[in-house]
Amino acid sequence: MSIVGKSAHSAKFRRNRWLLTAILSLYFIYTFLPLFYVITAATKSNQDLFSTFGLWFAADFQLWENLETLFTIQDGIFLKWMANTAYYSSVSAIGAALFATFAGYAFAKYTFFGKKLMLALVLGAVMIPQTALVIPMFLMLSNLGLTNTPLAVILPSLVFPPGVFLMWAYIDDAISNELIEAGRMDGAGEFHIFSSIAFRMLMPGFATVLILAFVANWNNYFLPLVMLNKPDMFPITVGLAQLYSTAISGTGGVLLFTVVMTGALVSIVPVIAAFLIMQRFWQGGLGAGGVKA
């Protein structure tokens, strides 16, 4: 509780508290309604989706039927998509977070020739449009025969510039230069200092980057869309988008409408759960990046 808050338990303060809480509550309804809609839609039959009010449940509770359809259509391809998403995003996230941590450590704790140039390059990389990168990458990887393989999605995702900046800011703060020098005086080599002293100290930062990289990959659409064209290799994002366009174009039958929403529900539950469980990490970590900026 802040001092300013404490300073006045006056009528004005109480009125402001009601007013501001009401404003936040309104925005909360806006934030929450789409998520609530996913839940109600996933419990309805296709017929009810069109004939009952969208923001409430229908009399006929069809969630289990919808889940069954979701997991059985096209020989259980949705399960495959989930596994693909988990596989692509966890491997990419671990690799990207490790590389970002090494690089951030180098930027934070060493002076070396070319440092400024490299930082500028990494920062400039953020401005490059996806198409400018992904399309030539596709052409190159297809020459190497790597498109339609998990590597086509994982390898490019190992480059995660925001992670480098976050780790740079975090390490700069969390690990003092004297600590590293103490390690040098103790005779430890640079890698030994990193692995036995620094790494455990930068774990909170590492966890943040890991979560952010994981979410970025979990949410990625354009890269797998371009790189993969076999449906059984799709991640959820590409798969669901395709299901949706089948549903709306009518070719797959109107049957798919609720299934798409059921798929959406199933795929966001783990990410939201992960965020809620790990909120200690991302709140602190995002803050570090923001304050440094």
Binding site: L35, Y37, Y221, Y244, A264, S267, I268, I272
Partner: peptide
């Protein structure tokens, strides 16, 4: 903050239903 965790694809799907 939570909508940030929802993939853009899925957010778009949800809103296009809405």
């Amino acid at each position: 903050f939570l909508p940030y965790a929802v993939p853009a694809v899925i957010a778009t799907l949800i809103w296009s239903y809405l």
